[in-house]
Design a protein around this nucleic acid. Structure first.
Lengths: 148, 148
DNA sequence: TTCAGGTGGTCAAGCTGCTTGACTATATAG
DNA sequence: CTATATAGTCAAGCAGCTTGACCACCTGAA
């Protein structure tokens, strides 16, 4: 494999990722969830797993805990998450999705499905599965940094 | 294809793209090109095609022309590009890569090749080619937004 | 040829999302 | 009990981008 092949792969990969991110973002907006940016999607990805503190979020997002805390403030203000006392650690506070937060997460999933559908049509069901498998082989448990 | 599959594809794609971006960035730094960020890589991708003005760059990067101009200022200061008078339009100025800029571009290609090599080993030559083809099918001429 | 509108570029001001640094309160290990 | 580590907050600053206003030059139509 030559350098030019590596660049072709890079360009295609980044173009696909960029396009997908933007489509999901647009789809989420179109479903009535305003004031929410791609970075919030990454946060939702962690929050939907449960048991998340602001510091957990910071690690997940690769930012400082102050930045994560500000992001949580914003999501609280917009009604997507709530802070609740941590059951066993009086210092910590759990960050949990509100019903609206869950609805937004589902909207993102729907938008992702819409964005991916034409890909499946072009690749065929078989090709699409192969693509997922290859990508999974290639980036095993990488940081799920941008979710949308 | 279900929503969960779409999210699996999304996560894998974004993880792969994020990892690749970061590795290229690290590889470029390791090769001695400091003070250069992933966004500059996108710029280099356009500049290496030639005949680029600041406004062309702005379109390519998806930012305002002011932001593009500031980015060019920075690259000039760091010795990666030069501004030259436009041959036919006295308003415009061509932005061209210096020798150092070309060297940095080659370093990015080498770094991309290094980053991709283990992928090829895991997928096999055949699988790797399939991956490139599928991605190309999926994002035909999408904005080459992040190049590293 | 002239002139009206469009385009390339710059200057200036401001905003947003992040950082670093300092601090409090609580937890935990020895 | 004490020393150290951890969760979170407050405050200040910065980098990269935006919007708005402007000038110089190009282009097409009268």
């Amino acid at each position: 494999m030559q350098n030019s092949d590596a660049m072709a792969l890079t360009a295609a990969l980044l173009a696909a990722a960029g396009e997908l991110t933007q489509r999901i973002h647009e789809g989420v907006l179109a479903r009535g969830f305003e004031g929410v940016r791609p970075a919030h999607g990454f946060a939702f990805a962690r929050l939907s797993m449960g048991d998340a503190t602001a510091t957990d979020l910071a690690v997940h997002l690769g930012v400082t805990k102050q930045a994560a805390s500000q992001l949580v403030d914003e999501l609280v203000r917009k009604g997507y998450v709530e802070r609740r006392p941590h059951p066993v650690d009086a210092r910590a506070r759990l960050v949990v999705l509100t019903e609206r937060g869950w609805a937004c997460t589902r909207a993102a999933e729907d938008a992702a499905a819409d964005a991916v559908r034409p890909w499946v049509e072009r690749l065929g069901e078989r090709g699409a599965r192969a693509l997922v498998e290859q990508l999974t082989v290639v980036a095993p448990g990488g940081p799920i940094r941008p979710v949308w």
